[in-house]
Design a protein around this nucleic acid. Structure first.
Length: 451
RNA sequence: GUCCCUGUAGUGUAGUGGCCGAGCACAACCGGCUUUCGCCCGGUUAGCGUGGGUUCGAAUCCCGCCAGGGAUGCCA
């Protein structure tokens, strides 16, 4: 039987990194095994589901490249893929339970009688988990009073208003859609015995379950929308590469077991396996996510680099048709972790007005020899005939010698005088791109400023 | 409270009884990069939650404890 996995988001907010990672694992598993990846919309809660949310989630999935074989905008043989459109199917399944006398009405809601026996979940990641729903559900904890109170262990599967509940529709759809592997967050592990009881009530063979550990905040709390790195659309806005985000998400809770950490999507698809999934929760590390992205940027072809950087150059007012852009991007790619940082690194090449960083300027403005250093630099560089990096460097060295200084003593003033900052791309190539006239002009302006 | 899952350096992980005097990566810190640099290279700091067992030998197996997370909804 061919593998069928699904991602079943509830359209009640943004695409969250936890959800995206679940989607990724399901996608990888399906792709690796030549199966199908289904996108199903769990919008049974009409109160909270919105179309805007659905749009954001679909856009996020598309951006990440997690394409689905069946689902919204795609169709498929097991539709409809929005649960809100599947009520007849749920009614039919409810009928089966009614006929078997496994449900009853309770204040307008419908409850499913849980069996009084131990149910064993055989989880691919967590192993065997045994629970008796009757015992477990017969008491619940009241958060307010901190008291344990008697409870009805039978689970509600339909609201008084006719709306079906998650546990029920989830199981019905997994049966109807022929889902073979359910890969989901560990927060569902405790729900799984309920689902198993329903599968059994329907006489259906349950899918294979794999509960993956959760991703938490650096402080150990559950990640929420406010937290850095939590929302997928923000990665796009900051200039992350989708393949890098996938790569990092894969690493949170899975390992290839060798030392490889940087993967292309093809490699991930090949290497991913449920046996490599970790059991313990992980904490999201934004710094490492940045590093993974930087590694991917280094691998980019010049064309892909230009394409990825384009929106950020645009936003910074850097003309993308300037023929110095490709060379400037090559200087930036080695030093940048996300595209958002590119203008900061090379922006000075394309601007008329240099922005002087006060802290940087302060590093040289106190030097007694600054006037003569700048003077030597300007006159020395002025003399360069063929303005190339190979010629510029010796010229700086010669300028240093002319005033009895070491070359290193000139580099920083030159950098700050020309670019306005101590930080930036490799200086000599920047000078080359800037052109002799501009460089000399900037040195003179800076010298003037420092008087 | 009860039940479930988990517990290797700050973080992500490798490790399935001797090859572990615990490997790799990010971060941090320190150097080097023939003189700039947030890239690159090298190095340092730092860990098996805890207490008992089993064993000739335990990060690896068992038990208690502690800690974190999850479930306990007519949310998903």
């Amino acid at each position: 039987m061919s593998v069928r996995t699904r991602f079943a988001p509830s359209p009640t907010g943004f695409l969250h990194i936890g959800g995206a990672r679940t989607a990724l694992y399901n996608w990888l598993y399906a792709r690796k095994n030549g199966g199908s990846f289904v996108l199903r919309v769990e919008d049974t809660d009409a109160e909270r589901s919105t179309g805007e949310s659905m749009e954001i989630i679909l856009e996020g999935m598309k951006w990440l490249g997690l394409d689905w074989d069946e689902g919204p905008g795609k169709g498929g043989d097991f539709g409809p893929y929005n649960q809100s459109e599947r009520v007849e199917i749920y009614d039919a399944y409810l009928k089966k339970l009614q006929d078997a006398d496994l449900v009853y009405e309770d204040e307008g809601a419908i409850r499913f009688r849980v069996p009084d026996k131990t149910i064993v979940v055989n989880d691919t990641v967590c192993g065997e988990v045994a629970v008796n729903l009757k015992e477990q559900g017969s008491k619940r904890f009241d958060q307010e009073t901190k008291q344990e109170v008697e409870a009805n262990p039978d689970i509600v599967i339909r609201r008084p208003n006719g709306g079906y509940i998650f546990h029920f529709v989830n199981v019905v759809d997994d049966i109807e859609m022929g889902i073979t592997h359910v890969i989901r967050g560990e927060d569902h592990l405790s729900n799984t015995p309920k689902h198993l009881a329903l599968f059994e009530a329907f006489g259906a063979t349950p899918p294979t379950f794999a509960h993956i550990p959760l991703n938490l905040n650096p402080n150990g709390s559950k990640m929420s929308k406010r937290d850095e790195g939590a929302l997928i659309h923000e990665y796009r806005e900051k200039g992350f590469l989708p393949e890098a985000v996938n790569n990092y998400m894969a690493l949170l809770g899975w390992s290839a077991k060798d030392d490889q950490e940087i993967f292309t999507m093809e490699e991930l698809t090949k290497r991913f396996d449920l046996s490599g999934v970790t059991k313990s929760n992980s904490k999201f590390d934004y710094a490492k996510c940045l590093w993974v992205n930087a590694e991917h940027i280094k691998q980019l072809s010049p064309g892909a680099l230009a394409a990825g950087a384009a929106p950020f150059l645009d936003a910074a007012g850097i003309p993308s048709d300037d023929d110095r852009v490709p060379a400037a991007l090559e200087l930036a790619r080695e030093r940048v972790q996300i595209f958002e940082e590119i203008p900061k690194i090379i922006g000075t090449i394309f601007t008329e007005e240099v922005t002087y960083d006060p802290a940087s300027v302060a590093k040289v403005s106190g030097r007694d020899d600054l006037p003569q250093v700048l003077e030597a630099l300007a006159t020395g560089l002025e003399k360069v005939e063929d303005w190339t990096a190979e010629n510029i460097k010796p010229a700086i060295a010669a300028a240093a010698e002319s005033i009895g200084a070491k070359m290193g003593a000139l580099m920083l003033p030159c950098r700050i005088g020309v670019t306005g900052s101590t930080a930036g791309a490799d200086l000599v190539p920047v000078l080359e791109l800037l052109g002799k006239v501009e460089v000399v002009k900037r040195l003179k302006i800076f010298a003037e400023m420092q008087k």
